[in-house]
């Protein structure tokens, strides 16, 4: 009964979401904006869905695509397959992707990722109080940062993108080769 009552808002959401399908119209671009002055990426410690703790400082030495997202955010869902593809392509070459989920629990995220055609295999961390997104001055979702091997934020994208577009891959490769 408890499970059923938990499902009702989700089913209602899906029904009326279909009615408001125009919400999903914008196409995804591929431009990342370089920061004129690269800044130090704030450090953080967060847990994943299995309650394993991750310390962001341990990613130093890798180029990191840091993506702030949520399951209810349509462009977040749309850009996720391209993040997985670029992760699969470069993960062995000092590159990784981290998805920082905003204010949702592991069950909801697990259910969401299971419903995707391409299930993400990169690290998904739970920013349950949005403290990390505040530290990164994220105002809306999705927002993505590209962080170099020295831990500096070099590029930013507000809104959904196709991250496996060749122009984005060129930027990632250039940062990996620095």
């Amino acid at each position: 009964m408890k499970k059923l009552s938990a499902l009702i808002p989700a089913l209602l959401f899906m029904t009326v979401f279909t009615v408001n399908a125009a919400w999903e119209q914008p196409t995804l671009g591929y431009t990342l904006s370089p920061l004129s002055k690269p800044v130090e990426a704030p450090n953080f410690k967060l847990e994943d869905m299995d309650e394993n703790e991750y310390d962001f400082s341990e990613y130093r030495g890798k180029v990191v695509l840091l993506n702030f997202w949520a399951t209810w955010c349509p462009p977040c869902k749309r850009e996720m397959p391209s993040m997985e593809r670029v992760y699969q392509k470069y993960q062995g070459d000092n590159f990784t992707v981290i998805g920082v989920n905003q204010m949702e629990d592991g069950d909801r995220i697990f259910s969401f990722t299971g419903s995707l055609d391409t299930r993400p295999t990169f690290d998904i961390l739970l920013d349950s109080e949005s403290k990390v997104s505040q530290a990164y001055e994220v105002r809306g979702l999705p927002t993505t940062y590209l962080i170099d091997k020295q831990g500096k934020i070099r590029y930013r994208a507000i809104g959904g993108r196709e991250f496996d577009h060749q122009e984005v891959e060129k930027i990632i490769q250039s940062l990996m080769n620095e």
Partner: peptide, 17 residues
């Protein structure tokens, strides 16, 4: 979340909902 942010500074290709 969900509400349009009060302010936005958008570079090329940026968008928000």
């Amino acid at each position: 979340w969900t509400l349009l942010p009060d302010t936005g500074t958008f570079e090329v290709g940026d968008w928000q909902q």
